[in-house]
């Protein structure tokens, strides 16, 4: 069963590579952010998949990665838009 988990984790690593192409190409900043988001979610899945073979602490790493992904996106939205269009605390223009 561990082999099946490792196989799935390997395929997920390839999907991370694919979404890095989107980060490279853009064209908008939101596109690059979305690529990073997918990499974060896939990273969470990869860590969860290798945790039965490794240490249970990997699940904590996965949880931290999930949190960082969400924080990164919120920080991006807060910082990237000049008029605060993505910020729900301000009215968009």
């Amino acid at each position: 069963m561990i082999e099946a988990y490792f196989f799935a984790a390997t395929v997920l690593l390839m999907t991370v590579a694919v979404c890095l192409v989107r980060v490279l190409r853009g064209p908008t900043r939101a596109d690059r952010m979305m690529g990073a988001q997918l990499a974060a979610t896939a990273g969470v899945a990869i860590l969860a998949l290798i945790s039965p073979a490794g240490s249970p602490a990997m699940l904590d790493v996965a949880l931290v990665l999930a949190l960082l992904g969400a924080f990164a996106a919120v920080a991006f939205v807060k910082a990237a838009t000049i008029d605060g269009a993505g910020d729900p605390e301000e009215e968009s223009q």
Binding site: T41, L59, L63, P88
Partner: peptide, 26 residues
């Protein structure tokens, strides 16, 4: 813990997608 990670990720994704969608609006 596994189920919790999934629920939190789903909650974060549903919220974050609205934020990114809104910031890409302009």
């Amino acid at each position: 813990k596994l189920v919790m990670i999934w629920l939190l990720t789903m909650l974060a994704a549903a919220t974050v997608s609205q934020l990114i969608a809104r910031s890409a609006l302009h």
